[in-house]
Write a protein that binds this DNA or RNA. Structure first.
Lengths: 234, 234
DNA sequence: CTATATGGTGTGAAAATTACACGAATGAGG
DNA sequence: CCTCATTCGTGTAATTTTCACACCATATAG
């Protein structure tokens, strides 16, 4: 079956930058393309959006198809739009507009499975990326910038989202690692602990970690944001 | 001539939110639609993007065609992408993805001319908008939020853009009006004057306004941003 | 010359941010 | 069981930034 239009139409795809923090480093999920164009290159998971499908839903579907990360696994996690990328020629086949999304997944749920259209699916440290297909390097740069903005000193409405890098129960040191990794700068421990408690409500679970060859750490759970975080529309 | 594809393709449009500050109020340029759908309704200027045309260029072209604001007039002015909007059904004709842009124009250059596809083109106070076509109310809400974010207390990289609301030569009171209008809150005069000078380099032109029934005001020109404004990618 | 309207300036209080050092608790290994 | 290595957890003072606040100056209109 063919589809005919009076005027030419571009194709529309959705691509997803899945970020996680693994061993204190920012990582991105990439797939190795199994088909032309850019066969064999690494790329963001993504693909064509269905005609009756919302853009974000298409992004999630493609993420499941190519990297094995299902919408169920993403449930409760942030999912932001980065923007549309449509420079003519960015896809050698035809005019393709892509809408890029960003999601943040917890370090303890960061497993990828190569699937349809992808030869492999792997985590890459953000500062050691391979050459990427299409304009995905540019898209990733913008995704990274969006992540940084979330925790710029007066917190945006999306700042809560960075807790998605953490397990449900986490230590303050783990939280510090998240903020340090995103900002790229080391933080002073005592100040960080004061600061995080003024901006978020953390419930002390009265449990501790075990197994470390050192003093155990108290476990916390995020229960809410405190007033003072900006509300975005101000 | 007809265009045929193996798979269905959505249409892609670009819409533009043109903001200006007129008499101390945030205003938006709207056009009255001259054609179906939503004929007679007010809408953002915008339209279909050409197949060889960059998204932002398409937006600028449509803005010229519908509201008489030419790319030359926009030269030097900020032009930000807000994002893509593609909920199925947002356009009754066919599946349409729109990419929305935001621009800020100076109060002294804020003239609109209805043109192709538009019955009228007029400024509307942002807090007294008429009912809008499509999902343009949602798009405008996001554009407004983006504007607010530009001046959230630690300034984003885009904060300089708000000076585009001002004439080349402006008084500090005019600048204060811009920041008050965007933030929605009154600012204390002495603090504002101190603050703006710590964040931007303003050249004192050693000229004053005339004609007011009051003490004349000194005129300034923006010459640069000072260190301390964030650089976006941290 | 008086009235009206906006322009322009400094200081002190309060709040937020930064810098900084040491004892505590655990597991590993001798 | 003792020691070592390693991470956890805590408070105070100095600095910087933000905020609150009131009065005289200078122009035009009448």
């Amino acid at each position: 079956m063919a589809y005919t239009y009076e005027y030419p139409h571009p194709a529309v795809t959705a691509d997803i930058a899945v970020f996680s923090i693994i061993d204190g480093r920012l990582n991105v999920a990439l797939i190795e393309r199994a088909a032309e164009p850019f066969k064999g290159s690494w790329a963001l998971p993504g693909g064509f959006v269905g005609m009756e499908e919302d853009l974000a839903d298409g992004a999630r579907r493609e993420l499941a198809e190519e990297a094995g990360v299902t919408p169920e696994q993403l449930s409760g996690l942030p999912f932001f739009q980065i923007g549309a990328f449509g420079t003519p020629g960015r896809d050698p086949r035809e005019r393709v507009i892509t809408v890029a999304y960003l999601t943040l997944v917890p370090m303890d749920r960061a497993t990828l499975v190569a699937s349809t259209d992808a030869a492999k699916a792997e985590w890459f440290a953000f500062d050691e990326l391979p050459p990427l297909a299409f304009d995905h390097a540019e898209i990733l740069a913008q995704a990274r910038a969006a992540l940084s903005r979330m925790i710029s000193t007066d917190l945006s409405a999306e700042a809560d989202a960075v807790f998605s890098f953490l397990p449900e129960e986490f230590t303050l040191s783990q939280a510090q690692t998240v903020f340090e990794t995103i900002s790229g700068a080391p933080l002073e421990k005592r100040n960080f602990r004061k600061w995080i408690k003024t901006h978020w409500e953390l419930e002390d679970l009265n449990k501790t970690t075990t197994g470390g060859r050192h003093r155990p750490a108290a476990l916390f759970r995020l229960t809410g944001a405190k007033a003072g975080a900006k509300d975005g529309a101000a």
